[in-house]
Write a protein that binds this DNA or RNA. Sequence first.
DNA 1: CGATGCCTTGAATCCCTTG
DNA 2: CCAAGGGATTCAAGGCATC
Lengths: 380, 380
Amino acid sequence: MNMILPVTEELGRSRPLAKREAPTWTLPLDQILMGDCITEMARLPAKSVDMIFADPPYNLQLGGELFRPEGGRVDACDDDWDKFDSLAAYDDFTREWLAEARRILKDNGTIWVIGSYHNIYRVGSLLQDADFWILNDIVWRKANPMPNFRGTRFTNAHETLLWCAKDEKARYTFNYRAMKALNDDLQMRSDWVLPICSGGERVKGNDGGKAHPTQKPEALLYRILLACTKPGDVVLDPFFGTGTTGAVARRLQRRWIGIERERAYVKVASERIASTLPLDESAMQTVADKRSQPRVAFGLLVESGMVPPGATLTDSKRRWTASVRADGSLACAEHSGSIHKVGAALQGAPSCNGWTFWHVEQDGALVVIDALRQKHLAGL
Amino acid sequence: MNMILPVTEELGRSRPLAKREAPTWTLPLDQILMGDCITEMARLPAKSVDMIFADPPYNLQLGGELFRPEGGRVDACDDDWDKFDSLAAYDDFTREWLAEARRILKDNGTIWVIGSYHNIYRVGSLLQDADFWILNDIVWRKANPMPNFRGTRFTNAHETLLWCAKDEKARYTFNYRAMKALNDDLQMRSDWVLPICSGGERVKGNDGGKAHPTQKPEALLYRILLACTKPGDVVLDPFFGTGTTGAVARRLQRRWIGIERERAYVKVASERIASTLPLDESAMQTVADKRSQPRVAFGLLVESGMVPPGATLTDSKRRWTASVRADGSLACAEHSGSIHKVGAALQGAPSCNGWTFWHVEQDGALVVIDALRQKHLAGL
DNA sequence: CGATGCCTTGAATCCCTTG
DNA sequence: CCAAGGGATTCAAGGCATC
């Protein structure tokens, strides 16, 4: 079965293509293809997408029911789509979709795969077998994981992501400066502390419960897409689920293609993405060269949505304003850079503590961004 | 070549062995076996060690070390190895030493393997292929990693450890309470923040430089041995290097066996371990695991008059009450039976720990009956 | 309106001894 | 071998009601 659901209007700028790359096909951009991931991938043309983000079944192999100490039952991920007859069956499935992924990916494109210890060693090994070249393994350290209720193991508090190029020589995209800016002017490390997806971000089903058992946080996709794609790049997600990849891609003005088998998830994802708005141009500017050197601890607040890209900051007396860009740097008419640098430049001062200088308007009142930082710190 | 170097005197208490386990062999305890790891492991008896810690070659693919199936080192200037051959050779080598490890390990023993993204996906996959059962993957988050100098990737700031039992049903050792105590009374998580090995701990060679390129921090082994072995247990390290495993094992009063092929490392490790002192008895005390405490029947407290027959028990919020019968069972309007069964029935829960659920009123305050049990155990 | 406290929940390979 | 039953076991967030 193949059903193409157009979700968004055309957006993003068209990028000039080199002669050799001129495609003879048209990609189903910004759409969800409903159907089996391998079948649908097989219909897509070779070397056509810039990035693949894949959140495949983990093959959890859970036993019986698990109860919490106070008696509650753990709502396990026991869906049929996560069940495989054997490790060999899981390997066959993985080999197959990885082969299609490799075919579809541009030569300088990269692939991200997320998993847990149940499956990630299979996936990593098969990625290497398929001649993918691992660039990093990334650890998502969950700020608020589920505890181990029986006291039998260490709290399983992380998941692993693999980031690979098609081969050792590939010239992949890595927005080093944007990542450094997002991390308080320190190199972004291979371990990322992020909360799990909950609260308002978690998509609810008709029954009020979670629409999907394994929805990923937008902050995770935000960092991945900001790090490894450019605006207008095409991102394919063959295990689309509730469409986190599509929502973040649209927000960051990337193009996306989703593949999803379950009709219910397709519906949920379509509605979700349709209600997501792309960032405007000024927010989309990322640090391009050394001179802008933003010094921001601030990026984490941007990433987590506490201060959304595009938000306007002002000083306590509303004499100046500046807008927040996607990588946590600020821009106003004459200046751009870190919260500290722009604050200093506007005041004509040699230096400025941006944390106490800048404020955001919240519910009609000005809130100093240092308060938000404290809130964030307290939350971690 | 096989050279046995006795390093330490006998230490640790002898553990009583069940009849069936009575060994007909003698292990080379607290010694370094000099030679190839697979050859030396092949000499050790089956099901004889409680834990294996392995820090195998990482197969960095930097034009550096490659290993033949038999474990021999490939001459670094041999350029004929293509990627497939090197991965396959690494897999063969890994399969071989894992097979020996599995043979030597007791049925309830566990194995730890550390690696980086270069090799850990091969190792993890082959562990599963060899029917090992992954209990956790642990992320060692380096507090002070080497930066990525070229700005082409995320800072590679962690290594991964795999902790496995021999099969799904194995009853492995996990000192839950000790780990919780080590982590400020919170469950120990799967991500460990530890500094890399440097400073005075780093063993120096004759030239003043580091004696070994990949010496692991003692804190890492300390946590592993404290978590997953008991005093007197035997730990095998087939890639002994500078002997961190031996040094920490001796400190924590565990027995150890090291295998190392390089004479220089054997010498360094011997001297290092000889100068390491075991902790004294008082320092060796760890938080007692409740599971290992002797059982006390609730009836015993009734018998001794600590909780008189006819006394009324209630939960912490006084939502339910029940009365104590002469035989130590409870009764309320609708249910009767053990403290556990009645507690479970009243709550509609699948199970209940009556010891922590029920309270007695003493001097106007509620006292949990588990406290009375502890008092009884203490002989008060 | 803010502070407090209770309830719910999240990709989970989640017990062990005795009869 | 299985069945029964004792009794060991939870962290951080968000939502919501209450004070």
